Computed example of a mutant assay.
Amino acid sequence: MFPLVETVQVVDGEALHLNYHQKRLDATFHSYYQAESPFTLAEIIHIPRKFSKGLHKLRFLYDQTNYRYEFSPYQARRIESLKIVEVETIHYPFKFTDRQAINELVSQKGQCDDILIVVDGLIGDTSIANIVFFDGKRWLTPDSPLLAGTCRARLLAEGIIVEAKIGLADLARFHSFSLLNALKGEADLLDPLPIKNILK
């Protein structure tokens, strides 16, 4: 089993934002394996003709020396509500294939669609995405995510969102929220959800 994965959005046969995935893969290699990455995604990934139309998910699975990648159709799942789940600590610094710790937290979501993980009083991520909050003027994202996503990194670089320390008590000052990940992109910023949809 490969311990690490990059999940890439493929639209009409094009793998999007590979430079951000490459940057995270390189950083993961440096920290996790104390080595330089031998993989260059843009050179390795070839998209078969049957995936040249529509939206697909590409999973690039890897370890220190080997890799494989696979495709599957992707249909976005609309998340309407989040259940706050508080933990003292959780460690998910890299995009692991083993998500047992997160899945155990998801079991606490009740009737909500997903969870919002709060670590030692600070807002982190949902189980599948980074989160951003709108205060009426700006989109703010927690400065302590469980996993720094590639879409989050891109929107920070473009100045569309900004980092801030966001605690559980800060939620009341926001109007709405939206979720970001490599497959969802930033489209949900145009259709945010009311902050009341985050439930204790």
Rank of each mutant, 00 (worst) to 15 (best):
A76I: 05
V118D: 10
F133H: 10
K137H: 15
Y20L: 12
E86N: 03
L193R: 03
H21N: 04
K95W: 09
A182R: 05
S107K: 13
G13T: 00
D135M: 09
K137T: 14
L180F: 00
A76D: 13
R152Q: 15
R59I: 03
T89R: 02
K109I: 06
Q108W: 08
E158I: 01
K165N: 15
P192L: 08
P3I: 04
A187P: 00
S127L: 03
N19K: 07
I117C: 11
K53I: 06
E186S: 11
H91Q: 09
R78W: 02
I161G: 00
Q34E: 01
I123R: 12
L168R: 12
K23R: 15
Y67F: 15
R78M: 09
N66Q: 05
I45Y: 08
E186L: 00
Y33F: 15
L18P: 02
V8S: 11
F133R: 09
E70V: 08
A148K: 09
Q34N: 13
A101N: 14
Y69T: 13
N181S: 10
Y67H: 15
C151M: 08
K109T: 10
Q9M: 08
S31E: 13
R154Y: 03
F174A: 06
P142G: 12
F2W: 12
L147H: 10
K184T: 13
L156W: 03
F29A: 02
V11I: 06
E163D: 15
L183F: 05
L189N: 09
Q108R: 14
S37F: 02
T97L: 06
F29I: 00
